[in-house]
């Protein structure tokens, strides 16, 4: 690795060595190196400081730096493990690791639960589910009557809240996902399997030969 990697770590706070990240995630060292090329693009798109700010995340997702989205905000907050308002390279790779096709399904189910637990109470509450449905309808320019929205939320909530205590806990969520596995389809990114093949252009700039 030599001076290039140490030069990189001086310039970019939160940078971690590919070997360390590869040891803790489903990625290989060269895949982490390839992810670093992607990370460099994203983290310098608006503010050239080597850190992904929310506007840069929005730009990458929507091609629009100002587009707000409840779910993208939640993803950003979960990626921002240190809660310092930016996504660092180590956080980026570790969080993306959950989306790897080889990542344990249990990790994907747990991540989705934290995603939907908007107020981080350790439960998914009915009001949160309704808030997310309304956010989706708004995002998709779909208009539904209040009754239909309530019916959709009620039916899903009753199905999931098997203990009937008015909130969905992690156990109930695991059970619910096992009945409806498509609910976590977003939690797997096929791109991440052999990312160096999917994006050869990334490999050109990556250092490590596997």
């Amino acid at each position: 690795m030599g001076c290039a990697s140490s030069k990189r770590s001086k310039r970019t706070p939160g940078y971690e060595e590919p070997t360390v990240l590869a040891a803790e995630t489903p990625f290989t060292v060269s895949e982490v190196e390839a992810l670093y090329e992607l990370y460099k693009k994203l983290s310098n798109a608006i503010i050239a400081d080597g850190l992904i700010h929310k506007e840069e995340f929005q730009l990458a997702l929507f091609r629009n730096r100002n587009r707000r989205n409840l779910f993208a905000d939640r993803i950003f907050d979960l990626f921002d493990v240190k809660r310092n308002g930016v996504i660092e390279f180590g956080e980026f790779v570790r969080s993306l690791g959950v989306f790897h096709p080889n990542a344990p399904v249990a990790d994907k189910i747990a991540f989705a639960f934290r995603l939907y637990d908007l107020r981080q109470t350790g439960f998914i509450e009915r009001e949160e589910l309704k808030e997310m449905v309304l956010a989706l309808l708004h995002e998709s320019d779909l208009v539904l009557s209040e009754d239909v929205v309530e019916t959709i939320v009620d039916k899903t909530f009753t199905d999931a809240d098997t203990k009937g205590d008015g909130k969905i806990d992690t156990e109930e969520w695991k059970e619910f996902v096992s009945k409806h596995p498509s609910l976590i389809k977003n939690m797997t990114l096929p791109y991440l399997k052999d990312i160096t093949l999917a994006f050869p252009s990334f490999v050109v700039a990556s250092e490590v030969e596997e």
Partner: peptide, 26 residues
């Protein structure tokens, strides 16, 4: 058209904000 019997989480999972594959598209 959204059927009233639809699973709310299924509906939510269609959000573009949850589709990270666009991070990887050129």
């Amino acid at each position: 058209v959204v059927p009233a019997t639809m699973n709310a989480f299924e509906l939510i999972s269609t959000s573009q904000g949850l589709n990270l594959s666009s991070l990887f598209e050129k």
